[in-house]
Simulated scan of single mutants.
Amino acid sequence: MPKFAANLSMLYPELAFMDRFAAAAADGFSAVEYLFPYAFSAADLAAQLKQHQLQQVLFNAPPGDWDAGERGICCLPDRQVEFREGFLKAIDYAKTLGCPRIHVMAGLVPDGIDPERLLATYISNLKWAAEQAGLENIDVLIEPINARDMPGFFLHRQDQAHEIVQAIDAPNLKVQMDLYHCQISEGDLAMKLRQYLPTGRVGHLQIAGVPARHEPDIGEVNYPYLFALIDELGYDGHVGCEYRPKRGAVADGTSDGLGWFKALTWH
């Protein structure tokens, strides 16, 4: 069965962020991911990981002004200096946290800019990021995100992401394959897994129920079938649980919704 990582940006919303590490460990998770670490010191986060015997498997590079609606700046021609400064900061965090991969969000497509210019900027920044991360044995990930949840996002299909990764041809540049986004954007999940996992270019998987992004046992996707397929295909990375607990920010709301996880991992 795949190894699961709790996404602490979404799970345990009733708790302060720093208290979510203990909650995840208590529920049986051995690994965590989250969107952004930058509101906290790397040393404090590392202390939580050590205290609760958790592995940090993923976080995002700085995305621009998230609160103002920005969703990454990697494809934006006038933000290259900011992108590169932010990515170096992400590497510093990753080194302290022992995190082997950083997700780079592409960004929203602005009006009035030639798409080819955006693509050229994106590729240039990713090449540079992969070179910098490679010096520290860190993978750089790019993720297609569905247009319903994030209208105008630059990257929204698996084939688009894989074409870019192949074109750049850096061994540490890979695709973050979120099955929730993939189901909404294009479907055919089992065949997509069969197509892409054997390439070795999928660096991380994520899951959530479709359509409401709740627990993976709520909705239209047969995750037990996909988990077995993921094992069959030899994927040995983590699967990030990036979903919103259906019960929301109530005491034990996340833990009460982990029946699917405990059935798979607790014996």
Rank of each mutant, 00 (worst) to 15 (best):
Q55Y: 02
L97V: 00
I142K: 06
D178P: 07
F83P: 05
G134C: 09
L35G: 06
H103G: 03
H267F: 05
D65C: 11
F59I: 10
E242T: 03
E232F: 00
H181N: 09
I164Q: 13
M150Y: 04
K127A: 13
G28Y: 08
R84W: 00
A190E: 14
V165Y: 10
E136F: 15
L233K: 04
P77Q: 12
P216I: 13
G203N: 02
L179H: 12
A94V: 00
V32L: 06
E33T: 03
F154N: 08
A6N: 06
M10P: 00
H52W: 12
P115Y: 03
K95G: 00
A16S: 14
H267L: 09
D178L: 07
L193Y: 03
K262G: 04
Q195G: 09
C75G: 14
A130C: 11
Y196T: 14
E70T: 11
P63G: 08
F87Y: 06
A190N: 10
D159P: 08
F36M: 15
F40C: 05
P62S: 07
R84P: 02
E220R: 07
T254K: 02
P13I: 01
G112D: 01
F59Y: 10
E220F: 02
L264A: 13
V250P: 07
I168L: 14
E136R: 09
L76W: 09
C241R: 05
A249S: 11
A263V: 02
H162M: 15
H52E: 07
F36E: 04
D236W: 00
A170E: 15
L135H: 13
V140E: 08
Q55R: 15
L108A: 06
I207A: 04
L108P: 03
P115G: 05
A43I: 11
N146M: 06
T265K: 14
S124Q: 15
I168M: 13
